[in-house]
Amino acid sequence: MIIPVLTLIIMLIVGAVVLGFIAVSAMFLIWWERKVSAHIQTRYGPMRVGWHGALQSVADVIKLLLKENITPSGVDRLSWWLAPFFAVVPVVMVFVCIPFGNIFGIELIARDLNIGILYIMALTSICVLGIFMAGWGSNNKYSLLGGMRSAAQIVSYEIPLVLAMVTAVMFAGSLSMQKIVEAQKGLWFVFQPNMAIAFAIFIIAGTAEVNRTPFDIPEAESELVAGFHTEYSGMKFAMFFLGEYTNMFVISALAATLFLGGWSGPFLPPVIWFLIKTYGLVTFMMWIRWTLPRVRVDQLMGFAWKVLTPVSFANLIVAGWILMK
């Protein structure tokens, strides 16, 4: 009887730590994005609250907590209320098998599921439901258009994204996240030609998957106000923001794990390496956002189906051929 209670307590602590990490990471990333965008545009960005505006996100969260939560008349109540849950809960569940490395001999992974990568693929594709429910439930034309576009975009880019992951699985020969990292002990996957192509595909499709510029058509401010979350206010809006930024972290963490050797690296502790790689990739995505203009819908869909999908299939077959020999 003692051992299950102990296990349960450990599980609860792990869960609480991960939730805390998610909240702090999302708040940090929102501040970081504002600073990065500001400096790219030769501005300062937030400067007033705390050192260089470091507490700006805290102030924003308090502000959003105190905001009135408007429910427009005519919304589809069930999907309206469920949408924020669908935007956040799957992203939280992904953290079960994100390998953060280890520190003082403790493995920083909630549970190394033996189907890790498949589990992550399944959960990341649920996010589209939240976005579409928000778009449909709002009973607003902009939201509906944003939700429709988003659903079409996310399912289209999911094919190349998952194919790039499958290429990594072929090289690693395992679905477990820890084994994939261990398979890269000698040489990071990204230094092999096939995997370099897969990495490029993964970054492009991942950027589209989290609806960021140049693929931010679902929320194109100049035509759709804010897309699927136009009608949301207060804490529900904050939940969509949290989901979006955590999704960005998850995509970058996956890219770091599958292609850049995960937590392995010299001198520094593994967890530091993992965070450097992940936040480096997040910063790269921000850099792209503030550099490139938005693409058109037809260009977007055409690129996914006519370029990325055939290229990733060809890449997969060539990788298989090389590994067979």
């Binding site: 599980m11 792990v14 869960g15 939730l19 956040v88 809960v89 909630a110």
Partner: peptide, 14 residues
Amino acid sequence: GYVGLFLVFGIIFV
């Protein structure tokens, strides 16, 4: 168990 726990924690969080 961890998968279920994270599901519950996510729902409680939101």
